[in-house]
Amino acid sequence: MKKGAKAILYGCLATAVVLTAVTTASLMNKKSVAHAEPETTITVLISSIENKDGRLLLKADPIAWYQGDEANKIFAERDPEGAAEIGGVPDGYYIVNDDKTETTYELSDQAEVLMQLLNPKEIKWNEEISVSQFVEVMDHKENYDQTVFPYHLTLKDGKVVKVVQQYLP
């Protein structure tokens, strides 16, 4: 083989090795991103929170929460007579809960908890409380039953990392 042909062959081989390495690195990077679990938010009705083996387990019934025009649209689809009679949802929201199956979620002890009506006599938008305060408030239903409110839960890596109480007028 001549020197010029060898140089071209080695050049092509080197290029192929570099392209393979770059492609492999790129694919490996994409694979790790694809498996990273993004945060998701769901809306639920919480029935209880219990401490089991050092883990806080939150039992809740997932619901569909609609506001504004979307609430009016879903209301009209599901109850055309009622929507025609009153013209739309009375308080600007509509809840759909066709399946009342409860699901258990693990509540992170570092979760952010934001309440709207911790005290029934005073609205404080996004009042931050600790997870332990939240557990206590949810457990004392005789004072002011916080389980009547929907909650928006942010889930990450299988745990609840944020809880936001939904204000109901």
Results as ranks from 00 to 15, higher is better:
Glu85Lys: 14
Glu85Val: 04
Ile86Glu: 13
Ile86Cys: 11
Ile86Ala: 06
Gly87Cys: 05
Gly87Ser: 11
Val89Trp: 06
Val89Thr: 15
Pro90Asp: 09
Pro90Ile: 03
Asp91Ser: 06
Asp91Leu: 09
Gly92Met: 01
Tyr93Lys: 02
Tyr94Asn: 02
Tyr94Leu: 06
Ile95Gly: 06
Ile95Trp: 03
Val96Asp: 14
Val96Leu: 13
Asn97Asp: 10
Asp98Ser: 15
Asp98Glu: 15
Thr101Trp: 12
Glu102Tyr: 05
Thr103Gln: 14
Thr104Tyr: 05
Tyr105Cys: 07
Tyr105Val: 01
Tyr105Ala: 07
Glu106Tyr: 09
Leu107Gln: 05
Leu107Tyr: 05
Leu107Lys: 05
Ser108Arg: 10
Asp109Thr: 05
Gln110His: 09
Gln110Trp: 00
Ala111Val: 01
Glu112Tyr: 01
Glu112Gly: 03
Glu112Phe: 00
Val113Thr: 04
Val113Gly: 03
Val113Gln: 07
Leu114His: 04
Leu114Met: 04
Met115Ser: 00
Gln116Glu: 14
Leu118Lys: 10
Leu118Trp: 09
Leu118Gln: 12
Asn119Pro: 10
Pro120Glu: 11
Lys121Pro: 05
Lys121Asn: 15
Glu122Asp: 15
Glu122Lys: 15
Glu122Arg: 14
Lys124Leu: 14
Trp125Pro: 01
Asn126Leu: 15
Asn126Arg: 15
Asn126Thr: 13
Glu127Pro: 04
Glu127Lys: 08
Glu128Arg: 12
Glu128Ser: 15
Ser130Thr: 14
Ser130Ala: 03
Ser130Phe: 07
Val131Asp: 01
Val131Met: 07
Val131Phe: 08
Ser132Gly: 01
Gln133Gly: 04
Phe134Ile: 01
